[in-house]
Amino acid sequence: MPNPIFNQPLDRKVPAYESPATQEIHQRLASLKKSQTMLYRMMNLETWAIVGTMEEFDPGFWNRFMTNRQLAFKNFLAQKKAQRS
């Protein structure tokens, strides 16, 4: 009686058959991914429109915003590190 080898992968192939339900799921997922991509592109466009407008009214706005954001992030990380200790 041969000894079974448990570490070898099985040579089973899944058939390439796609039911109508599976096709519909793939179509809906593709549509969802496309919608999500469009949403992020719109958000980027809106952000840059706001930044451009603020730069016109208050030159240096974006630089100050990013400096404050970086400082706030460093403070956040320091607080999290202090909580863990």
Rank of each mutant, 00 (worst) to 15 (best):
residue 71 L to K: 14
residue 59 P to N: 00
residue 37 T to M: 12
residue 30 A to K: 02
residue 78 A to Q: 05
residue 74 K to V: 10
residue 79 Q to D: 10
residue 50 I to Q: 03
residue 24 E to H: 08
residue 19 S to A: 00
residue 14 V to S: 08
residue 27 Q to K: 12
residue 81 K to R: 14
residue 33 K to I: 07
residue 34 K to N: 14
residue 56 E to L: 10
residue 13 K to H: 10
residue 3 N to D: 12
residue 25 I to C: 06
residue 3 N to H: 08
residue 75 N to F: 05
residue 75 N to H: 05
residue 18 E to L: 04
residue 67 T to R: 10
residue 38 M to Q: 14
residue 55 E to Y: 01
residue 77 L to T: 10
residue 72 A to C: 05
residue 68 N to E: 14
residue 65 F to S: 05
residue 19 S to H: 00
residue 47 T to C: 04
residue 28 R to D: 03
residue 44 N to T: 06
residue 18 E to C: 02
residue 58 D to T: 14
residue 1 M to Q: 07
residue 83 Q to F: 06
residue 59 P to L: 00
residue 48 W to R: 13
residue 71 L to P: 04
residue 27 Q to G: 06
residue 61 F to R: 01
residue 8 Q to C: 09
residue 24 E to N: 08
residue 44 N to V: 04
residue 67 T to Y: 05
residue 21 A to K: 08
residue 27 Q to D: 07
residue 50 I to E: 07
residue 50 I to Y: 06
residue 82 A to G: 02
residue 27 Q to L: 13
residue 3 N to A: 12
residue 19 S to R: 00
residue 21 A to C: 05
residue 20 P to H: 00
residue 22 T to I: 11
residue 26 H to Q: 15
residue 24 E to K: 13
residue 58 D to S: 10
residue 18 E to D: 04
residue 84 R to W: 05
residue 56 E to Q: 15
residue 16 A to E: 11
residue 68 N to H: 10
residue 36 Q to S: 13
residue 64 R to Y: 04
residue 51 V to A: 02
residue 20 P to Y: 01
residue 58 D to A: 07
residue 85 S to L: 11
residue 83 Q to N: 06
residue 29 L to C: 05
residue 62 W to I: 06
residue 72 A to M: 05
residue 19 S to P: 00
residue 85 S to Y: 07
residue 29 L to P: 02
residue 75 N to I: 05
residue 10 L to S: 11
residue 29 L to I: 08
residue 70 Q to W: 06
residue 14 V to K: 09
residue 17 Y to K: 08
residue 28 R to H: 04
residue 6 F to E: 11
residue 41 R to P: 01
residue 71 L to S: 12
residue 3 N to S: 12
residue 58 D to P: 03
residue 67 T to E: 12
residue 39 L to R: 08
residue 75 N to C: 06
residue 47 T to A: 09
residue 57 F to K: 13
residue 47 T to W: 09
residue 53 T to S: 13
residue 47 T to H: 09
residue 65 F to D: 04
residue 8 Q to P: 04
residue 76 F to L: 07
residue 25 I to V: 15
